[in-house]
Nucleic acid binder design. Structure first.
Lengths: 138, 138
DNA sequence: TATGTTATTATAAAAACTTGCAATAAGGAA
DNA sequence: TTCCTTATTGCAAGTTTTTATAATAACATA
C-alpha cells in the first residue's frame, strides 16, 4: 500500500489527516482500472481494513473528490462512481451498451475558456460525462 | 392542467400511454421555475392526485427524461433533479453559494461537433452541469 | 515521549431510492 | 360500447445513501 503515501502531503497541507481508512480507500481507487461505485469500494477496502464502515466510505470518497485526490463521475444509471485523480479527462458513455470512451480535456479547453469569459464563473471542476450512442450501437 | 395535454402525442407515438400520474407530474414540472427533486415533485403532485406514490414519481421522472419530455440534471450534492424539457441549455452551479446560471447550448455546439467527429460517438443527451465559482464567490 | 486539540470514525437510526409482482386501467380492435 | 392486450401503477419489502452524535485517534506542541 506504499503507493498511496504520495497523497499524505496534499492532505496535511490543507490541515487534514491521513488515516488508515483514507489510505485503504485511496489504495482501492489507485488500483482500479475503471470507475468504482461506493459499494464496490466498500467491499474491496473491507478486505484490507475489516472494521471499515459504509458511511465512512461515502464520506471519504466525497472528501477525496472535494480535495482533488479523486474524481467523481455520473453513471448511466444516475449514480456516482469514483476514480483516482489522474490526468484531466472526460467520459463518453453509450446509452445502449454502456461502453465508455475517454476524452482528453485538451479537446474541451477552448470551450471552457469561452464559457468562463461569457458567464463570469470560474470553473473549478473538470469532469464531464457525455451520453450518446457508440459507433457500434448507432 | 390543460397545459400538459400537448405531451400526449409524444407518448402515443412511441406506444406509451398518458396517465393521470404522468399528467400531474408533467404539470408540476411545467410550472416549476427551477429544478425540482423527486421528493419535491412527490409533495407537489400529491396535492392534485392524493393516491400518488413515491415509486411512481421516481419511475415517471426517469421515464419522462428518457423520452425527452423532462431533463435531469446533477445537483451540487450529487443528487438528480428534474425540469421540463424546454430549449436546450446547460447549467453552471457555484460550489460555494449554489447560485445557478444557464448557458445556451449554442455556445457548446461546435465542441459537441468536434467531440462527435473525434470519438465516433453520436451524442444524444445535451444537458451538462458545470461546477465552479460564481463571480461573487471568487 | 506525553499531552491536548480537534479532525475523523463507528454506531445506530432515518431518509432516499429501487425492485418484484399482482392488480389496475389506457386505448386499440371488434 | 364492450372486450382484450399490455403498459402502468400501488404495495410491500429491499437496498442504498445520509445524518447525528459520542467515542476515537492523528498529529502539533511542549
Amino acid at each position: 500500500m506504499s503507493c498511496t503515501g504520495q497523497y499524505v502531503p496534499q492532505l496535511r497541507a490543507r490541515g487534514y489527516r491521513m488515516t488508515p481508512q483514507r489510505l485503504v480507500i485511496l489504495h482501492v481507487l489507485h488500483h482500479s482500472k475503471k470507475h468504482v461505485s461506493p459499494s464496490q469500494v466498500y467491499e474491496l477496502a473491507k478486505k484490507d481494513l475489516p472494521g471499515l464502515t459504509e458511511p465512512t466510505v461515502y464520506r471519504t470518497l466525497e472528501f477525496l473528490a472535494e480535495n482533488g485526490l479523486a474524481r467523481s463521475s455520473q453513471q448511466k444509471n444516475g449514480h456516482i462512481a469514483y476514480e483516482i485523480a489522474g490526468h484531466e479527462h472526460h467520459h463518453l458513455v453509450c446509452r445502449v451498451c454502456g461502453r465508455e470512451a475517454e476524452v482528453d480535456h485538451a479537446l474541451l479547453k477552448s470551450m471552457y475558456k469561452k464559457l468562463e469569459s461569457e458567464s463570469g464563473y470560474q470553473l473549478t471542476d473538470s469532469h464531464l460525462t457525455f451520453f450518446g450512442l457508440c459507433p457500434r450501437c448507432q
